[in-house]
């Protein structure tokens, strides 16, 4: 079940650079369903499911395992932790959140008050993590410089169709890719599903994986922005109105032929899709498209509210729709 797979993957710890817990879980889920699984030097999990068709093309489909976090840069003598960002995370997003380290050590995040100028915007250097330690020595028994904290798992059903959780970006896409690899059966093309690392710090895993895989076609699965909450109207994408086919973002202008194939697949699968023009952000698609001499590449997006917050909200109907589109896409002539 897509929902169970999603929940399982959301429970894993996996900031950029330390994604192995997610990879292990994916291996477990896919065991017996695919032709091969291997992990490369950057931690990408590369999963193959071949077609029997001798004219099959190789489609690389990427979903990133990593999520954003805070890395400890200093431990103060009172036992509080100072941090720096891993990926696009800021003081407004982290303040007041519950965090967790790799070994399960919990912490809470706070911002020091600015007494000189109470109206000033805080920066990440005003942020600290409180792990309950009363001295540096006590803190050092639990945490070292370089350890990374992420939002603590917190899966919540919202209304009938929507769910909220940290790391929805991009575990929802990992869940889709797992389900695609499980259920694709006798499909026309070879699927190389890559569960990528370090997307949030610059598409690094996908860059090297695409070089290794040398696909004929690339596809990234990722979340996109939303335009359906108060005072937010761009991109013109709504939750529950179907997955979105990316036209462009900062990292990629989708190859027109791949984009059209996605529309065709959606049409054949009877799934409504949206068209996405995103003025910010990027996906692994940007790295795949520019690999070697260039790879025709597109991105299928799951509309997601409050991206990079601890409550990333998606609509399960968009997920179900996306899975149908993907199953069709790998089977298109």
């Amino acid at each position: 079940m897509l929902r169970d797979t999603l929940q399982t993957l959301l429970s894993c710890y996996g900031p950029s650079g330390s994604e192995h817990a997610v990879a292990d879980k994916v291996r477990e889920l896919l065991s017996g369903h695919v032709d091969s699984m291997k992990t490369d030097a950057l931690g990408n999990l590369i999963v193959e499911k071949f077609s029997a068709d001798e004219n099959a093309k190789t489609i690389m489909i990427a979903a990133h395992m990593d999520h954003i976090g805070l890395v400890v840069t200093n431990i103060e003598k009172e036992g509080f932790l100072r941090v720096s960002a891993i990926g696009g995370i800021g003081p407004k997003l982290v303040s007041g959140r519950k965090l967790v380290f790799a070994d399960g050590t919990p912490g809470v995040c706070a911002i020091e008050p600015n007494k000189k100028d109470p109206s000033a915007q805080p920066g990440l250097n005003d942020v600290f993590i409180d792990i309950g330690a009363e001295s540096r020595e006590e803190a050092e028994k639990l945490v070292s410089i370089g350890d990374v904290a992420v939002y603590a798992p917190d899966f919540t059903q919202l209304g009938r169709h929507k769910v909220a959780s940290p790391a929805m970006d991009d575990r929802c896409a990992c869940a889709l890719l797992v389900e695609l690899l499980m259920y694709a059966d006798n499909q026309k093309h070879n699927i190389v599903g890559v569960f990528t690392t370090q997307e949030e710090v610059g598409l690094r895993g996908a860059t090297v994986a695409a070089f290794t895989v040398q696909p004929d076609i690339g596809l990234a699965l990722d979340v996109t922005g939303w335009g359906d909450t108060p005072e937010t109207d761009l991109p013109a994408v709504k939750l529950g109105a179907g997955p979105a086919v990316k036209i462009m973002d900062r990292s990629m202008i989708a190859t027109p032929s791949v984009r059209e194939k996605l529309f065709e697949a959606a049409d054949m699968a009877g799934v409504a899709v949206q068209r996405e023009v995103l003025a910010y952000g990027g996906t692994d698609g940007g790295a795949i498209q520019l690999s070697r001499g260039g790879v025709p590449t597109g991105t299928l997006s799951i509309p997601c509210r409050y991206v990079h917050s601890a409550n990333e909200v998606i609509d399960m109907r968009d997920m179900e729709g996306a899975l149908k589109v993907l199953l069709q896409f790998v089977d298109l002539a």
Binding site: G227, D233, L234, P235, A236, I247, M248, I253, V277, A279
Partner: peptide, 17 residues
């Protein structure tokens, strides 16, 4: 420029390439 949204009155909003 690229069409980023079509408003209810038919105005075409623009994204930039």
């Amino acid at each position: 420029l690229m069409v980023s949204k079509i408003e209810d009155d038919g105005s075409v909003r623009m994204g930039s390439v």
